[in-house]
Amino acid sequence: MKTKHLNNQKETVAEAAKLLQAGEVVAFPTETVYGLGADATNDLAVKKVFSAKGRPADNPLIMTVGSVEQLRPFVTISDAAKKLMTAFWPGSLTIILPIKEGMVSMLVTGGLQTAAVRMPQNELTRSLIREAGFPIVGPSANLSGKPSPTTAAHVAHDMDGKIAAIVDDGPTQVGVESTVLDLTAAVPTILRTGAVSQEDMADVLGSEVIDGTSPKSLSADQTPKAPGMKYRHYAPDKDVFVFDPLDWSDLKEHLQTGDAVMADEALLKQFSEKKQPSWSLGNNLDQASENLFAGLRYFDDQENIERIYVQAMPNIGLGKAYNNRLAKASGGRLFEGPHAE
């Protein structure tokens, strides 16, 4: 299959919508990462997404919509969900809701009676979904388990020849996937951290929100309610190690041929005397989250790199999402400096 590379003009959005209507798979931009879209009501189209990604069939897909009205036929929208949608949609929040009987493919839900739903901030993609006329599935547009794509070039690296088209709207802004909140639990529970924080959601709901992202294992026969809960995610082929900024001096002495470093500008300015390959995470947490996956992908493609050392960030707000993705990418491996835990 030859993959079309489409720009962000109205005519190419219409072309992408026609491909979706024909049951094809199209990569699309969001504010978080690029997604892999197909008609969520068409089982054959959804199967193509699993095939392109190499994704396990019991790993549910997020259902992405262009408007709340487009969502109503498929799920039951509670008062709590309405509050969250009003506050955070369009945006980086995915909400798990009960499906209406017979209305959502079991391929999308992983066989569960719940669906994860989101309306992205990217206006181009919302117009694409509205023009297509149906919700689309929207997992990240990468090979299953690998770092998520934050540019169209990243998508092409993994998906050229496997999908019908890629719609290019430039780099994403957030850089890590959306927060996932389970509203079917007894107490609203975060299943994946993202840009929308626990505190923000609790304020909107006026009630407790539980962080359910602490490490836990699902048995082989259990289906996760959200992506990223059961299977290996965000991981390059190269070895990744997390380092505490307090261990920077020790890390600099430890580095050798084959090592690369990903750190913020403040640390890299202290690194000028070293000839080690490096990648800037920027000047703040927002920029670090935006640049994380791009750096992991870059060094993963460099034959001379064997190990990637990546700076941890303060574990607050968006830092929780950043550190969560980094922990998964590294498999929990730490640089064993004096401050490593």
Rank of each mutant, 00 (worst) to 15 (best):
E11P: 06
D237N: 14
K162C: 00
L251R: 11
I62K: 00
L268D: 12
M85R: 04
P73Q: 10
A312Q: 12
L112S: 10
A156L: 15
L71Y: 02
T184L: 08
V167Y: 07
D168H: 14
L107S: 15
N7D: 15
S105F: 12
G91A: 08
S78F: 01
S249W: 01
K47A: 15
V26H: 10
D247R: 14
A156G: 08
E341K: 05
A45N: 11
I62R: 00
L191V: 01
R297H: 06
G170W: 08
L267E: 09
L128C: 07
F299I: 12
T184S: 10
W248C: 08
L218E: 03
T257N: 08
F50R: 12
E11Y: 05
K225F: 00
D169S: 15
V65H: 09
D259R: 12
K274L: 14
K216M: 09
T125L: 10
P90N: 02
A22H: 13
D244L: 04
K2P: 07
V155N: 09
P56S: 08
I136L: 14
T150H: 04
N59Q: 08
M262C: 14
F50T: 06
D160W: 07
E69Q: 13
P147W: 07
L267N: 06
E290V: 00
N284E: 03
K225P: 02
G319E: 09
A17H: 11
S289W: 00
S272D: 12
L268S: 10
E303C: 03
A45E: 10
N122T: 04
P139N: 10
N42V: 02
A40R: 06
N42E: 03
K225Y: 03
I308S: 04
R232I: 04
G258Y: 04
V117D: 01
K225A: 12
A321P: 05
D264P: 00
K83C: 02
F243W: 04
H233M: 12
E273T: 11
F293K: 07
G102W: 01
V33D: 02
V104E: 04
P135Y: 10
Y322R: 13
A27K: 12
G111V: 11
A312R: 14
L296V: 08
L318A: 10
M63F: 03
H233G: 07
L246Y: 06
L218M: 13
T94N: 05
P73G: 14
K100W: 01
Q198A: 07
A195L: 08
I305T: 06
K53V: 01
A116D: 01
N323Y: 11
D58C: 14
I166E: 04
T94Y: 01
N283S: 14
R72I: 05
D79N: 15
K47M: 11
L143Q: 09
G319F: 04
G258A: 04
G110T: 13
K100F: 05
A260F: 06
E11T: 14
A141Q: 09
A340H: 08
Q9D: 13
N8P: 00
G161D: 10
L251G: 01
G110Q: 05
D244R: 02
E101K: 15
V46Q: 10
